[in-house]
């Protein structure tokens, strides 16, 4: 809906830039997923609350994997002025979305699909409503990108609140890595995840893309 509205409200060139930024962001953020979401969902389903070390290790791994994504986004944005800033902001939004999705996959593993639905509705409805308002008030591409980022930050805060409430973490600081991911759990997770990550990173026409949706 937002895309249709954006096509009407933005200039053709701006709509093209919006789609270009989304496409670049979508490809790059796959590097930060690396197949970890589905793998973690499986481990949570199998191990229940005993999968807490895997949950923490996945967050740490994802934060490390986000570093090259941020670097690549910055490189793609440098020297392009406002358009570059839009590209970076939308890419960052999609990167944060992968963290919201990771939390959603944890609850999926617990078969608590209502929580997953809440998180996804928050993000998608929020982006659609606030994006439409911005476009309605003749906002430009930069405002649209900023609003999308703000909604995603709020969605991530909501997701982390759910994670804490469900007892997966005791405080948010636990999710922040304080060392390189060299633990046995991280190592094993990576070993399990890379084939899946490759399958997901293949172009979307290959059949395995369905695993990331």
């Amino acid at each position: 809906m937002l895309l249709l509205w954006a096509a009407r409200q933005l200039s053709t060139a701006d709509f093209g830039r919006y789609n270009y930024a989304l496409a670049i962001g979508f490809i790059l953020v796959q590097l930060a997923d690396f197949g970890l979401q589905l793998l973690l969902s499986r481990e949570v389903a199998r191990l229940g609350s005993a999968a807490r070390p895997q949950v923490l290790a996945t967050f740490h791994l994802k934060l490390w994997l986000s570093l090259p994504v941020l670097l690549l986004l910055a490189l793609a944005a440098i020297g392009q002025g406002v358009n570059g800033l839009v590209l970076f902001l939308l890419g960052l939004t999609l990167l944060l979305q992968t963290f919201v999705e990771l939390v959603a996959y944890i609850f999926r593993g617990q078969q608590r699909l209502a929580v997953e639905a809440q998180l996804l509705i928050w993000v998608r409805l929020g982006t659609a409503v606030f994006g439409t308002i911005i476009l309605w008030q003749n906002g430009q591409l930069l405002e649209l990108a900023l609003v999308s980022l703000a909604v995603m930050v709020s969605g991530l805060a909501f997701a982390l609140w759910h994670l804490r409430r469900a007892g997966w973490i005791s405080h948010i600081g636990q999710l922040w890595p304080n060392a390189l991911p060299r633990t046995a759990v991280s190592h094993h997770l990576l070993q399990q995840a890379w084939p899946l990550g490759l399958s997901i990173f293949f172009p979307s026409l290959t059949p395995a893309w369905r695993l990331c949706c």
């Binding site: 197949g35 793998l39 399990q192 084939p195 899946l196 490759l198 399958s199 293949f202 172009p203 026409l205 290959t206 059949p207 395995a208």
Partner: peptide
């Protein structure tokens, strides 16, 4: 998942 990666590579090439 390693087998799946192999199948994905085969299907991508075939496509």
């Amino acid at each position: 998942q390693r087998l799946l990666t192999g199948l994905t590579a085969v299907t991508l090439s075939l496509h």
